[in-house]
Design a binder for these strands. Structure first.
Lengths: 220, 220
DNA sequence: CTTTTACTCAACTAGTTAGTTGAATAGTAG
DNA sequence: CTACTATTCAACTAACTAGTTGAGTAAAAG
């Protein structure tokens, strides 16, 4: 084999290592949470339901692949996405999976059949309407995630507090809800609740991580 | 665990399967060729150097992940990329790998640009110093190639076994590594590894074939 | 100092995957 | 029909990976 071919093979192997890091459901889930902002190991373990040791190992694998970065502060280690390109890569992967893999599509249809009914609104559309004051933007994620960054002008009402907040919400204005991403069910739930109460509600297509990755303005 | 969480876990698993399909150097290479247009199995096997059976299996894996499509015509089966989004996904993956994974960047830079920084030593110089016992000569090629002929006095430590061998290496003596030739990366990698561990290491300019071609003494 | 907390590491099991070899299938030609 | 070709399948080995358990660090608190 020629040396050129060896180099090429090695390069592909190196790229494959990055892909392999994405090739585990657990790690993809960790990435989803890490994409919201930096998180400590045990926070991530609690969110995903993985054991702490297992979470630690997965995070190290992601780190070695260059997909996340780690920062130690006191007794805690905070992991964060290594960059925007990683968000985009995951979005691209998800897109291909949804479009090409039959079982993903089926899963989506079976379980999220109502997704299309809930009419997602594009990020640019939301930004435009929000600036024009035509819509109320609702961030239904937990408070700490909201604090770490959110869509400009969005009101934070964690999903479990939505019920009590409804009275304070202007009934005329259209409401756009968003959460962590396309597979995060909180915004679906929020839209459903709002509609039952007579609000005109829609979902933001995708969630906050994708919003930020797209380079749209962010507020802290 | 709530049913929402189960759904989510399944979705991530399904997406991970697509990513896992990209997580092999062989399959990435196949995708590169398939991306140029549809190709038959044995054509792809010839291009990549993989066995036909292995190629067939990899292609089926890619197909199951929805990344390629297959079309049978007569006795041949032609595989093609499933869509443009797959190309974009691979490009995205490559981009992240090059920017984020240290080893990919290093591979590219070291090989293409900084080759000369690793100070190659001339064959005559090596021979002189080796005879005087001033240096340890390291042959980092596979064992069979070493067995077929090598520089007199050279120790054979295949590159992948280098890590484990480091402790047996005298730390004082300078180490000269060589492999197959000027475009072979193994000796670059060896020198880098050695230097990171505090050894004084250099490369033999060119490799064993050139050594022999120059009429210098050879050992079997 | 000792204890607690957050994380990492090492060792192990069970399941998975890459790659090989040799046989089976299915289309084509003579 | 037989012979030939391209592809796939089945069985197997060797290497790898996810996840567990229990021990080991290292920073902070008491």
């Amino acid at each position: 084999m020629s040396s050129d071919e060896i180099v090429k093979q090695r390069l592909y192997q190196a790229i494959a290592r990055v892909a392999a890091a994405l090739g585990s459901g657990g790690r993809l889930q960790l990435l989803e949470f890490v994409a919201q902002g930096e998180r400590s190991v045990d926070a991530l373990a609690a969110m995903t339901g993985l054991s702490v040791a297992n979470t630690s190992k997965h995070l190290q694998a992601l780190r070695q692949a260059g997909l996340v970065s780690a920062r130690k502060e006191g007794v805690r280690v905070y992991y964060a996405l290594a960059g925007n390109d990683v968000s985009l890569l995951i979005a691209s992967l998800r897109g291909v999976a949804e479009h090409r893999a039959a079982d993903v599509e089926k899963l989506l249809q079976d379980w999220l059949a109502h997704r299309d009914e809930l009419e997602p609104v594009s990020a640019h559309e939301v930004l435009k309407r929000a600036r024009a004051g035509l819509v109320t933007v609702l961030d239904v994620r937990p408070e700490d995630e909201y604090a770490a960054g959110h869509v400009p002008g969005a009101i934070n009402v964690p999903i479990e507090k939505l019920e009590g907040y409804l009275s304070k919400l202007p009934k005329r204005k259209e409401v756009i809800a968003y959460c962590r991403g396309p597979y995060c069910l909180m915004s679906f739930e929020a839209v459903e609740k709002l509609r039952r109460r007579g609000f005109k509600a829609k979902r933001l297509e995708n969630g906050y991580p994708e919003w930020r990755a797209a380079g749209l303005p962010v507020e802290r």
